[in-house]
Design a protein around this nucleic acid. Sequence first.
DNA 1: CTGTATTTAGAGCGTTCGATCTAAAATGAC
DNA 2: GTCATTTTAGATCGAACGCTCTAAATACAG
Lengths: 194, 194
Amino acid sequence: MARPRAFDEAAVLDAAVDCFWSKGFEATSVRDLAAQMGITGASLYNAFGDKRALYEQAFARYVREGVHARIARLEDLPPLEAIETFFAEVVANALGDPARKGCFLVNATLELAPHDPRFRRLVEEVLGAMQGFFRRQVEKGRALGVVTATGEADELAGMLLGQLLGLRVLSRVDPSPARLEGMLRPLFALLRAP
Amino acid sequence: MARPRAFDEAAVLDAAVDCFWSKGFEATSVRDLAAQMGITGASLYNAFGDKRALYEQAFARYVREGVHARIARLEDLPPLEAIETFFAEVVANALGDPARKGCFLVNATLELAPHDPRFRRLVEEVLGAMQGFFRRQVEKGRALGVVTATGEADELAGMLLGQLLGLRVLSRVDPSPARLEGMLRPLFALLRAP
DNA sequence: CTGTATTTAGAGCGTTCGATCTAAAATGAC
DNA sequence: GTCATTTTAGATCGAACGCTCTAAATACAG
C-alpha cells in the first residue's frame, strides 16, 4: 500500500516519556521532543497527534510499566513485605535519579490534573489502583495478624498512599537515604501489629 | 526627587502570588501577571526585576504568611493539638480551594527546585522549618507522655512532613473531606502514646 | 514497471513569549 | 517655576512557541 514507518514507535515514545518526565509538559517544546525522539516534527504529529496527545500516551506508558507492573509483581508477596518492597523500590528509584526527575505520576498530578478533567480522571484511576494495592495488603496482613488492628483498612491505605506521594515530593529536593528511609521507618513500625 | 509609584507593591505582589500559585511558573505569562496585577509590563520589570525574580518574591511572601506565620501561631499549643491543628488548617485550606491551586510550596518544589539550585535551597529551608516544628512537638509530647515512644523524634517528624506533602498532592486531584481526613485519622491514632 | 498511498525532511505559518525602548506624565528638590 | 528623576503607557524587539504545508522519498498492489 504505502511507505512504512521508519522508526520504532515504542522506542521513540520512551524518549518522549523521558522528556516529559524530567521537564514537565509546559517546559518541554515540540522541538525538544522531536530531537530527543530522533524524528521530525511532521512525523511526530503524524504518528502521535498533537503535544497533549503525545503527553497522554507517554503518561499511559509510564503508568503501565512503572505502576501497574510493580503492583502485579508484588501483589502476592507476604503483605508487610509487599508494602515494604513497594516503598523500597520507590526509594531506590529516587536515590538513583541524579536528574531529579521524580515520579511522572506525581508530576502529572500537579501540573495537568488540577486544570484538566480528563487527566484528573486518569490520575485518580492510578492513585486508586495504588491505594487498592495497599488496602488489600493491609487486609491480608490483618487476617494473618501481622498488621495493626488500629483504624480502617482503607484509611491506612490512604495514609500509605499519602506517604508515598510525600516521599516522591521530598525526593526531588533532598534525595538522601537518611531522609527517605528515615521517614518510612516509623511508618512501618507503626503499621506492624503490636 | 522623582515621581512616586502609583501602586501598592504589597497588593500587586499578592496578585502575582495568586497567578503563580494557580498556574505555576512556566504557564504564567508576564502579560497575565501584569494584567492581574493591574500594572504594565514596564512597571513590573521596573519594580520587581524579571519574571524569575518576581516568582521568588511571590514565593517568599507566601512562605512568610502561609508557613512561618502558622508555625509561630501554633508553636506553643499542647503538642498533639499543635500537630492536629496544623493538619486541620491545611485540610480546611484544601477543601476551600475550588480552583485546586494546592500548596504554592509543593508546586514550587516540583516545578522549580529540581532544576534550580537556588530554589532548592529556599525550599529545603522551608521544609526544614516545618519538620523542625513537628520534631519539637513530638519531643514535647514525649516529655508529657502523650506521644508514642516508638521511633526517633526526627524520623517521626519526617513522616509527618511526608504525610503533609502527600496530602497536598492528593488534594489537587480529589479534595474530598472523606479522603483527606481519612488518611490522617490512622496517622494521629498511631502517633498517640498507647 | 506503474500507480497509489504514506512517511519523510525542512521551510515556514501565525502567535505568543520574555524583555526593552521611547516618549509622555508626574512629582519632589531647589 | 524649573530641573532632575522616576514611573507610566504602549509599541515593539528577536526568539521560540505549537503546528502545518510542500515536495521528495519510499514501498506495496496490480
